[in-house]
């Protein structure tokens, strides 16, 4: 019995459908190759004591002064906002990881990259000047301070 010749068009069609299936199968295969790493140390929950009589914390003797610190693998900022209060915040802006500084004149925390502003409790008080809308608060640390003794603690 004579064989029916294979139709090239049909073969081509099947080949192309096969290519489509192959491309589709690629996605779950690549799923196994996914990975993520961080080159910073994970944050640690630490309690640090400070004494304004000792360096470097003596920088906080005057109201309005601020001090860059690194506690528990996290860069932070201590600010003497009043006679009786010192606050602690992380120094990394939640917008685009810019550097947070204390603006003494405006009594506010300001990002040096896009000028986003934060209150001493971390709340956003001024949006970044590039048009983005920021809703994430600036992480804060729990700080106790005894103005009479000049001593206190920071919990990260």
């Amino acid at each position: 019995m004579p064989q029916t010749p294979r139709q090239p068009e049909r073969r081509q069609f099947l080949l192309r459908i096969g290519a489509a299936a192959g491309c589709g199968a690629l996605v779950p295969l690549l799923h196994g190759c996914e990975t993520a790493e961080l080159y910073t140390l994970p944050p640690l929950h630490v309690e640090v004591t400070f004494d304004l009589a000792k360096s470097p914390y003596d920088a906080l003797k005057t109201v309005g002064a601020s001090l860059d610190v690194t506690f528990g693998n996290v860069d932070g900022l201590l600010v003497r906002v009043s006679d009786a209060q010192i606050i602690g915040v992380t120094r990394i802006c939640p917008h685009q990881q810019g550097n947070i500084k204390w603006d003494k004149a405006g009594a506010t925390l300001v990002c040096t990259t896009h000028a986003a502003k934060f209150a001493s409790n971390g709340a956003v008080t001024g949006q970044p000047n590039n048009g983005d809308t920021l809703t994430t608060m600036l992480p804060t640390w729990a700080v106790t301070f005894d103005a009479a003794t000049g001593k206190g603690t920071v919990q990260t």
């Binding site: 192309r16 290519a19 491309c23 690629l26 690549l30 190759c33 996914e34 993520a36 790493e37 080159y39």
Partner: peptide, 29 residues
């Protein structure tokens, strides 16, 4: 990646992306 046009005017592009910065690495499809 692959630029695959299954039917005219529609393209699928599966890709594998590897991004490494000073602070992190993220590889994903």
């Amino acid at each position: 990646g692959i630029q695959f046009v299954p039917v005219p005017n529609i393209e699928l592009r599966p890709e594998y992306r590897y991004l490494k910065t000073s602070s992190y690495l993220l590889a994903q499809y």
